[in-house]
Simulated scan of single mutants.
Amino acid sequence: MELARRALALLGVLLILASLGTPVSGWQAAQNGITDVELTGPAAVTEQDGSTFVWKDEPFNLSVSFLGEENQAYGVCTYRYQNGNQSHRIGCTDTTAQNATVTFPVGSWPVNETGPQTVQVVLTTGDGTATDLRTESVTVIEKEGDLDGDGLTNREEVKRDLNMTNADMDKDGLGDGAEVKNYGTGPTKADTDGDGLRDGLELQLGTDPGDGSTVAKLSAGGLLLGVGLVAAWVLLRRRRGGAERTADPAETTGESADEPLLTDDQRVIQLLEENGGRMKQAAIVDETEWSKAKVSRLLSDMVDEGRIEKLSIGRENIIHLEGHGPEAAKPPYSE
């Protein structure tokens, strides 16, 4: 019984250690194979969009790390692929180390090989059996090239810590090159002056994307415009009102304060008396500013009541008081 209890206790300890990730003698703590592939040196520029960017005319080191079994010989070979085809073997080396990092120095990439490429690493045992394979994306670029066509060279974008494959990093409607060279705005800040308007929108509005007072100026301008429109409307109303009113001598002399309002038919009679007893119907429309339909109905009613007379000459209607009709309308031998 005592032996059984000790065995169970040991098993419990082993299970706890295993759950905590603690290596136990005789157990493999990590899986064998390639653990890391890294490009370093002057040529290695940056990592963007899952690819390592390297200058084509600069040297670099390709380092490969791996885990293996004790007393086992390994071979590490590296290759360069372009467009899916193997273009060059970078290097191969043998080692018996269980946990090793091997480095392959590379002078530079071939002059005629630029753009997206692939580095392949193959780990084999001593008898040539492949045990692991790793591929890494590499983009070979020229310093004076312009990958994204934004007007900044690749060298300038690296110096400014910009993305060489994104022409408008802040998505403000302006290319990174234009922001740096033409407008002095920040290619990684959509609203350089912090006024709430994107840099590209400010240029469309004709404002300065570097002036943080733009919104305040636009607001003030809009307020002044609104006040001006209201003032113009009030002035226009006053002028129209003055034109519609006929000057009354009694008002100017102070003899009378208020004039009684005229009915529509009285207004028509007054107009006829002021114009020699007759007017064209179109002139009555213009003087009263009533609609043509209203004037036509009113005049028809007044004709029916015998208060005025209407004579059609061609396409015009002549409205007149009794005895004031056109001479052409009098019947022959009426004298």
Rank of each mutant, 00 (worst) to 15 (best):
K143V: 06
T40V: 09
K294E: 15
T165H: 06
G212F: 08
L218W: 04
T185P: 05
L203W: 05
L271M: 12
Q28K: 11
Q48H: 04
A100P: 02
D195K: 13
L236I: 12
L10A: 15
V230P: 02
D265A: 10
K280L: 13
Q72P: 03
P249G: 04
S291A: 08
E142A: 14
L321D: 06
P110C: 02
S65H: 06
T114K: 07
A4C: 08
T52H: 06
S312H: 07
P187S: 05
Q86W: 00
T22V: 15
M302L: 14
D265N: 10
Q72I: 09
V140N: 01
G126H: 10
A232C: 06
R239W: 12
A29N: 09
A97M: 08
T40R: 05
E274S: 08
G173P: 01
T192L: 05
V158R: 02
V102S: 09
L235Q: 11
G126V: 07
D94N: 13
E202K: 04
N154H: 07
T246Q: 12
Y333H: 12
K56E: 10
G184I: 07
E179F: 02
A250G: 14
N163R: 13
G222V: 07
V268K: 01
T188P: 05
K143P: 01
C92P: 03
D304G: 13
T93A: 07
P326A: 13
V285E: 13
A328P: 02
R267L: 08
R198H: 10
T95M: 00
T96Q: 12
A130M: 12
R6D: 14
V138D: 14
G276L: 10
G200I: 03
A178T: 08
K330M: 07
L236T: 13
G323F: 09
T125V: 07
E179T: 02
K217A: 10
E142S: 15
H320M: 08
A178L: 08
V215E: 08
P42T: 05
G325T: 00
V102C: 03
G175I: 09
D57M: 05
L10P: 06
D286W: 00
S334A: 12
